[in-house]
């Protein structure tokens, strides 16, 4: 088991958004999270990824409590997320977006330029090679120098997933990966997600297109009135 969410609740000024949410995710599986608009799906993502503190409950990632950890720490543990509207760095190239998402680059720390500048450029070269490899995986190898803001909506979603891959996320929280995409793009992302599952990544995705999501999911969660209901073995 990679993620365990136990009795998590969230309320805003007395308004209860999540009542009592509990579920577990197994490593190397795809789980879809369905629910009406406003049912608290994105709030749950914010809580797991550390952007919002829960009002109560416990969350464990690989056995470690992440209940009170901020987003920057949770990322370091191996949980990555995308957003409903892709949050790519729009003025930067696809290559720079991928490099910016990579973890623990020595060139991000000023003192390393004084202590060991050579290591920075060695690492930069390695990461560029990795970024190029990932750009092939997500089908953006011919767009490396293009500004992310100029990519289509679907390509930006692919780039977001590529950024999670170079970030070495083990658990990918994907917020509506198929929304607003044409059939070709949906197929491309479905294939990519199945490939990631084969590589051992765990995926939890919010989706409204139940047919498409169920087709690739091992498990489906329904979030209704702040409570989770679970269906197993849908794929």
């Amino acid at each position: 088991m990679i993620l365990k969410v136990l009795n998590v609740g969230k309320s805003f000024n007395g308004l209860i958004v999540l009542e009592d949410v509990s579920f577990e995710l197994e490593t190397g599986t795809i789980t879809s999270l369905f629910g009406e608009n406003g049912s608290g799906k994105t709030t749950l993502f914010h809580i797991i990824s550390g952007f919002l503190p829960p009002s109560r409950g416990k969350i464990y990632f690989k056995g470690e409590s992440i209940y009170d950890k901020p987003a920057t720490e949770i990322d370091k543990l191996g949980i990555g997320r995308t957003w409903q509207f892709p949050r790519v760095f729009k003025n930067l190239s696809v290559l720079d977006n991928l490099l910016l998402a990579s973890k623990k680059h020595p060139g991000e720390h000023v003192l390393n330029y004084l202590v060991n500048p050579f290591k920075i450029w060695q690492e930069e070269k390695k990461r560029k090679e990795k970024a190029v490899r990932i750009s092939y995986d997500v089908g953006l190898s011919d767009k490396l120098e293009e500004a992310a803001g100029r990519l289509s909506f679907g390509q930006q979603k692919l780039l977001s997933i590529g950024m999670l891959l170079i970030n070495e996320a083990e658990l990918l929280l994907l917020d509506e990966p198929f929304a607003g995409l044409n059939v070709i793009m949906v197929d491309a992302i479905s294939k990519l997600l199945l490939q990631l599952k084969e590589e051992g990544k765990t995926i939890l995705m919010i989706e409204h297109d139940r047919k498409k999501a169920k087709a690739i999911s091992d498990k489906v969660l329904y979030l209704t009135k702040g409570i989770i209901r679970e269906d197993v073995g849908v794929a």
């Binding site: 997320r81 790519v88 003025n91 910016l100």
Partner: peptide, 17 residues
């Protein structure tokens, strides 16, 4: 590149640690 990342999207920067 990190300065540019901060300029473009601080929330995204945080989500990448």
């Amino acid at each position: 590149r990190c300065f540019l990342g901060v300029r473009d999207d601080q929330l995204a920067m945080m989500s990448f640690g």
